[in-house]
């Protein structure tokens, strides 16, 4: 009988995650002669990323897409990707992750009962909200909702902002009412999750390039025949290509939408941001196992 691969992700139906997931499904189902099926559960239907990591480790789900920060709880080495201004551009970051360093990090997932398939596109995360950020000075005292991880919290605090913990589902109203002044995300998320309706500014601070990846459960992967394993690897590679392309497209479209919606797109000089952020690296690296060594490997590839 056919094996069904339960495939989860947390983003909307118009996200590059969904495009990639559909590509994966298409390739697997076309190539397996009805032996394998893929059921896609978007929009956190299978839970958030932390839970999907746990579920994959126990074999409760087959595959999922996750960003790097939620993995840090389980594999703290991934913390190196949360260093601010680690990369300069989406292309540069993707280039490194698609090379030997990326492969090395995917390997690490096997120690936690998972199979790292491919890195998908990184997210370029910037600050958006009610007030403009054109300099580090503008960051002073801003209440910004950030991802929960030291690389994010400490960076925003070091830049003079007040990082604020908050459930993602409350951010929209919090921005609307002024509980927070801003949040940080990639442009297409700002459009897909409707933040565009309540903000006036998108400031291209480009502080984090957050990796994302397709991961499979070890338990499920090992139930596949060698040919089927080859097939899902091929499907994952094609899903990766789809993701890289779709991210660029949704990113570009989002900037147009933001402008059309009357949101000011600010382009601060990043040099002073980078200076402030780089001073923080030694402290952040202390908390990341093999941080120094992996940072060197990454920088060799730049």
């Amino acid at each position: 009988s056919a094996l069904d691969i339960t495939f989860g992700h947390t983003l909307a139906l118009d996200s590059h995650y969904q495009v990639a997931a559909e590509k994966f499904k298409e390739v697997v189902e076309a190539g397996s002669d009805g032996e394998l099926t893929v059921s896609i559960f978007p929009q956190s239907q299978l839970g958030g990323e932390v839970r999907m990591i746990q579920s994959a480790r126990t074999g409760s789900i087959g595959a999922f897409i996750t960003a790097a920060p939620p993995l840090e709880n389980t594999l703290p080495e991934f913390g190196v990707f949360s260093l601010p201004y680690l990369f300069d551009s989406v292309d540069q970051a993707n280039g490194v992750l698609q090379g030997p360093v990326g492969d090395m990090f995917l390997e690490k997932l096997s120690s936690a009962g998972m199979v790292g398939m491919n890195f998908f596109s990184v997210f370029e995360r910037s600050v958006f909200g009610t007030s403009p950020v054109n300099s580090v000075q503008d960051m002073q005292g801003l209440k910004i909702r950030v991802l929960q991880g030291p690389g994010f919290i400490e960076t925003y605090d070091a830049l003079g902002a007040q990082s604020t913990p908050m459930a993602y589902s409350e951010v929209f109203v919090a921005l609307q009412n002024g509980v927070v002044d801003g949040a940080e995300a990639s442009p297409e998320q700002v459009v897909q999750d409707r933040f565009v309706e309540v903000i006036d500014n998108f400031s291209m601070t480009k502080i984090h390039y957050m990796p994302s990846m397709l991961v499979m459960s070890d338990v499920i992967f090992n139930q596949l025949t060698p040919e089927q394993q080859e097939l899902v690897r091929e499907a994952s590679a094609q899903a990766r290509d789809a993701s890289l392309e779709a991210y660029k497209q949704t990113y570009a479209d989002a900037l147009v939408t933001l402008e059309e919606s009357g949101v000011a797109i600010n382009e601060p000089d990043l040099a002073e941001f980078q200076d402030a952020a780089l001073a923080l690296w030694p402290r952040l690296l202390e908390g990341i196992p093999d941080g120094e060594a992996n940072l060197e490997l990454i920088q060799e590839q730049l």
Binding site: G47, Q54, S55
Partner: peptide
């Protein structure tokens, strides 16, 4: 499915 899937849901 492993019963432990329930604890994932519970804790989340």
């Amino acid at each position: 499915l492993p019963l432990i899937a329930a604890s994932q849901a519970v804790f989340e």
